[in-house]
């Protein structure tokens, strides 16, 4: 009995308490966003009421966001851009990562270094030349402009993550496939890729989130309201001078985070497996 009680206490102190603290830090921003989006402006600015609960809940900020701005259009644009650019980046990233992880060829180290260097080049250095390219291609104010430019950030990122993951697949499996007559491409498609699902999921979620949150290129290339993404649209319409429309901004942030939360909840187990494999073993 005593041992059981002690075990319970130890478990509380070593597992549940740290978990509760971690949960609090992780979820508090969402809670704050949610209650801010439900408060009236009067309540938001009042110092006389307890700020951690909503006293007079209202959906006005959500209604205003959905009726007075083009939020739904921005959300559609964001999803479209993020999904397509993530797909392009995963395919090209895998094609880049596999040879670097598996094949020995002259200049492999240089290519690896170049990928890392590309990823590290800050966006502010690239936006002017990229804007020139987009302009020459006549793609200003089209979603294609960002669909084509986001992979410049995402491919190096996906390639690095996938390289680590490809290296965890036993080379003997590939050798066996080669002995059985599979070509290098067949080995990749039929043996390696199916084993790397978790790696693809984690790279995909990260890439999707990066594409969804990207601001600078979207700001430069997308100027018309109807082609904006959520980050640029929300800032353009809901921040005016030194006045922030806090309620609507928080409503937009909360609604904007839902797609990632849904995707994440479906793939969370694979995602964690992918991260640990890529991070520890790679």
């Amino acid at each position: 009995m005593t041992v059981e009680r002690r075990g319970w206490r130890v478990r509380l102190l070593t597992l549940w308490l740290p978990l509760a603290v971690a949960m609090f830090f992780a979820l508090f921003p969402f809670y704050w966003m949610a209650i801010t989006s439900l408060k009236t402006n009067q309540e938001l600015y009042s110092r006389k009421v307890m700020p951690l609960i909503v006293h007079n809940p209202t959906l006005k900020h959500y209604v205003d966001l959905l009726t007075e701005t083009s939020f739904l259009e921005w959300t559609w644009n964001t999803l479209l851009v993020a999904v397509i650019s993530t797909a392009i980046s995963l395919i090209l990233g895998a094609m880049l990562a596999y040879p670097l992880a598996r094949l020995r060829f002259a200049g492999a180290a240089m290519v690896s270094f170049a990928i890392a260097a590309t990823y590290l080049v800050p966006q502010p250095l690239l936006f002017v030349p990229l804007a020139d390219l987009i302009n020459r291609l006549g793609l200003n104010d089209t979603l294609t402009s960002v669909i084509l430019t986001y992979p410049t950030l995402l491919i190096p990122f996906c390639a690095w993550l996938l390289m680590g993951y490809f290296r965890t697949v036993p080379v003997e499996l590939e050798d066996a496939a080669r002995i059985d007559g599979a070509s290098r491409l067949q080995t990749l498609v039929r043996i390696v890729l199916p084993l790397c699902g978790p790696g693809f999921i984690s790279a995909g979620i990260f890439a999707f989130t990066l594409a969804q949150n990207e601001f600078l290129y979207a700001l430069i290339f997308l100027t018309k309201t109807e082609v904006r993404t959520v980050p640029v649209g929300a800032i353009a319409e809901l921040v005016r001078g030194d006045v922030f429309y806090w309620g609507q901004l928080m409503a937009a942030a909360l609604l904007g985070s839902i797609p990632v939360a849904i995707i994440y909840s479906f793939f969370v187990e694979h995602y964690v497996a992918g991260l640990t494999a890529g991070g520890v073993k790679g």
């Binding site: 936006f127 700001l219 800032i235 353009a236 005016r240």
Partner: peptide, 13 residues
């Protein structure tokens, strides 16, 4: 219309 604080970036581009 560009967002607040973004005009200089757009003008530069």
């Amino acid at each position: 219309v560009v967002s607040v604080g973004s005009l200089l970036t757009r003008v530069t581009t």
